[in-house]
Amino acid sequence: MPVIAGLALLRYSVRIGIPSGHPRIILVHSILVFPFVFLIARSRLLTFDDRLEQASRVLGANRPETFLNVVLPILTSSIIAGIFIAFIISFGEFTATQFLVTPDTTTVPIIIYNQIQTGLSPEISALATVLVGLMIVFGVVGDFVT
């Protein structure tokens, strides 16, 4: 699936004229993680009590105030969880990213893969250790937030 998605998104981005490099990588990764983030946010919205929003409106708040003071605090945990999930999925999306990188723009997984192909260096081992530490921190923070 990632190979097909990578090729299809590469072909589509070329067709609509998105420049290669960072814009194309950002667009493709956004498209790949959107379904996961949408499902997380949607699950929270399904349990959202509309009466809270109505009560805020009855008490005199306008739409922006209601959104900022009632809706956004309720959705914050799902938004943060979606950001974490999007980062992890995007970071691990190696196969589709292979089709999009250029010599000037690359991602950390591609750099790690290229370095491993030429030989394991201490820099890659240190980077892998830092990444494992970051994933543990994200997991712990994610448990406290959600």
Rank of each mutant, 00 (worst) to 15 (best):
V70E: 07
G142A: 01
L46T: 00
D104H: 08
I110E: 09
V28E: 01
R57G: 00
Q98C: 05
L131V: 08
T76A: 13
S13Q: 05
R44T: 14
G17D: 07
S13N: 13
P35F: 04
P35E: 13
T76D: 00
L39F: 13
A81K: 08
L59W: 03
V58I: 15
R57N: 01
F36L: 12
V132N: 02
V141D: 03
I111F: 08
T118R: 14
V137F: 15
I26Q: 03
T102R: 09
R51I: 01
G133W: 08
G82Y: 08
D143L: 15
D104R: 14
H29Y: 00
S77D: 07
I4P: 02
G21H: 09
S125Q: 15
I85G: 02
G92E: 08
I26P: 00
I40Y: 13
P35Y: 11
I25M: 10
T129W: 10
N114F: 10
G82E: 05
Q117W: 04
S20A: 12
F34Q: 05
V108S: 03
T146N: 12
V58Y: 01
I40E: 05
D50K: 04
F38Q: 10
T129G: 11
I80Y: 06
S77N: 11
T95H: 04
F84W: 00
E53I: 09
F87D: 04
F36H: 08
A96L: 14
A55G: 09
F99H: 12
Q54S: 02
A126Y: 09
A86K: 06
I4T: 14
I83C: 12
L27F: 14
V145P: 03
A5E: 04
Q98G: 13
N62A: 05
Q98Y: 12
E65W: 08
R51L: 01
R24V: 07
I88D: 04
